[in-house]
């Protein structure tokens, strides 16, 4: 198996900052670290297993209903995740609310099935799915880290900024919790990455 399969998704071909896939759900769940981590793990699980099964079934899927078969496969895993979250992590499932359902239409999953799993053997497809899920999760967690630390002064709900700072006049940045700041932060991430990797710069 080629190294690129599990190395690229983290930096060179990161699904969020380079391929621009799966933005929809990535931004709304990054106000706090906990839902972001759960979301990252859920997406990794779904990308991994739906790629694996799509690859196992790749020679049997009738071409005409290909998209629907893929969607059914993906939604099967998403419903499993949703049911397990409701049973074992109820608070988090309430915070994620509709965004769990939106994993179905997360372009990363469909994108990886179409672009990789349908043309490759099950094991590399599984690794590709997991790596892409983690590459996506990495951005999610980084965003949530910044937003929770600056926006609420906490990490995983524990206070990080000492009380003394607040007494000295430090204030939590309310703006960074608001949705638009997530977009601006992703923009800055892209700037940073392309500053380092000049070959990604658009003409």
């Amino acid at each position: 198996m080629k190294k690129e399969i599990y190395q690229n998704p983290f930096f060179k071909a990161n699904p969020v900052t380079v391929l621009v896939l799966g933005i929809c759900s990535s931004l709304a769940v990054t106000v706090k670290l906990e839902p972001a981590c759960v979301m990252a793990l859920s997406v990794t699980f779904v990308t991994g297993f739906s790629s694996l099964f799509a690859s196992l079934l790749r020679n049997t899927i009738p071409n005409r209903i290909r998209i629907i078969v893929q969607l059914v496969l993906v939604s099967l895993f998403v419903i499993l995740i949703d049911q397990f979250l409701k049973a074992y992590a109820y608070d988090v499932s309430k915070q994620l609310s509709v965004y769990v359902g939106l994993i179905i239409t997360n372009c990363i999953i469909m994108g990886r099935i179409e672009a990789f799993a349908l043309g490759n053997k099950p094991w590399p497809s599984f690794v590709d799915g997991i790596a892409n899920g983690l590459g996506y999760g990495m951005i999610l967690v980084a965003l949530a880290f910044i937003r929770e630390l600056l926006g609420s002064g906490t990490l995983f709900g524990h206070q990080i900024i000492p009380d003394g700072w607040y007494e000295a006049g430090y204030m939590n940045n309310g703006l960074i919790i608001l949705p638009p700041m997530a977009l601006i932060l992703v923009g800055l991430f892209i700037w940073l990455q392309r500053g380092i990797q000049k070959e990604l710069i658009e003409k």
Binding site: I61, P62, I65
Partner: peptide, 12 residues
């Protein structure tokens, strides 16, 4: 033949 109607219907 994975493109025939019968196959598609049985598969789904």
């Amino acid at each position: 033949n994975t493109n025939s109607n019968t196959y598609t219907i049985i598969y789904s």
